[in-house]
Design a protein around this nucleic acid. Sequence first.
DNA 1: CCGACTTTCGATGAGCGTTAGAAAGTCCCT
DNA 2: AGGGACTTTCTAACGCTCATCGAAAGTCGG
Lengths: 230, 230
Amino acid sequence: MRRRHVGRPRADGSRNEGHPRDEIIAVASRLFSEHGVARTTMSEIARRSGLRQSSVYYHFKDRDQILVEIVSVANRVILEHLERVTADGGSAAERLYRLLRFDARQMCRFAFDINEIYRLGALQDERFADFWNERQELNDAVAALIAEGIADGALREVDPTLTALVLLSNDEGTQNWFRSMGEFGQVGGEHYDPEDIATFVADLALAGLLRDRDEVDHLRARALELDPRD
Amino acid sequence: MRRRHVGRPRADGSRNEGHPRDEIIAVASRLFSEHGVARTTMSEIARRSGLRQSSVYYHFKDRDQILVEIVSVANRVILEHLERVTADGGSAAERLYRLLRFDARQMCRFAFDINEIYRLGALQDERFADFWNERQELNDAVAALIAEGIADGALREVDPTLTALVLLSNDEGTQNWFRSMGEFGQVGGEHYDPEDIATFVADLALAGLLRDRDEVDHLRARALELDPRD
DNA sequence: CCGACTTTCGATGAGCGTTAGAAAGTCCCT
DNA sequence: AGGGACTTTCTAACGCTCATCGAAAGTCGG
């Protein structure tokens, strides 16, 4: 049994089923996505949540707190997929392909910009600590996958840590132009969707890493089978 | 013959040889780089330039104007290198390798963050128009290089435009973690410098694109010879 | 019905980017 | 040498932002 609307009523009379926190997160997420974090004001977030500006601070300590809440989802989605991929088994190369493709797709689809976090979050530790830890976890997992692939002879001999960093940041970089493409319509008259891009990025990465490059077709087929378009 | 200190003297008595514009650009560039664009205030820029806050507006229309001035350099440096590479001749694959490596190196070295521009500049056209046009020019050039490489049989058959976008954004993505690495010391206990990273990124890209992957060693050797560490 | 708790409000303050107009010099012409 | 034009900087002010504070308006449990 849930209490019904405890607390002072809102000025505009609106009521919110479920936690206002969630409503704020949803609204902020969309605004951050549309206008960028820097150009989104607390007033705007409050207004669209049916609240006065200062009321948002009852639910969140400050603006960055909202950000943290949103971005922590990003890493978590990919880490979850990592677990699934691990559970499914298959060769290291196959798991790597699936992870990279999923990550790139996720980046393109993600409600807003991971790159902005690097700017806003890089300095102020503490609050973003969880984010960076999970990021590190992801990076270690990819590095381990690469090391495994090298060990079993499927991949060329590269530095696993460096390669993991480069591959993950490739995915993030992809988001840059994909997002601006959305705003400007197309790039160079062509249109690409997240599926195409993600698949191509994964293809290119493994074509560069595999000893036997013909293997890529097989990996792609497996990935499309196990992680279909949703 | 140059006039000596026309205009009202500064409050703090400081004098500036050369144009204050250049001083402001230099100061802003460093601050943007250290703290990010979003967290750099006009007061801080002014203070370090020996000016009062509002005096900066005599030299620049607004904050973004300073940004535009700085970032326009980024594309231009790479476009210049493109010209040099074109003039030097060599196979399409060789020119592509050199361009990618230079771009990645440039990104790591660049005083501040290209990714932030995508966020801040994406929406407000006009002022950033030149930046985007030059970016497009670069992209077209890379796509043309790839097309040429496919035509002469050196590269696999890929979509030149899509590949160009992905490769360039890879370079940009690299900057993300390279920069945060610098702040946090190292990543995973390892240390990488821009040369290593850039060379690896170019290696990986061409290993994925070349039909004959053994060719990479040759391309790398040529690139190191023609574009030595500076 | 009353006190405790929850949620929102309105008022307020410090700090930001930006604008406007005055001020303090140099330069050039007579 | 004097004075007007020009250049560069200043001080003062405005409107907007994020954030804090204490009061207010409801529900809940006894």
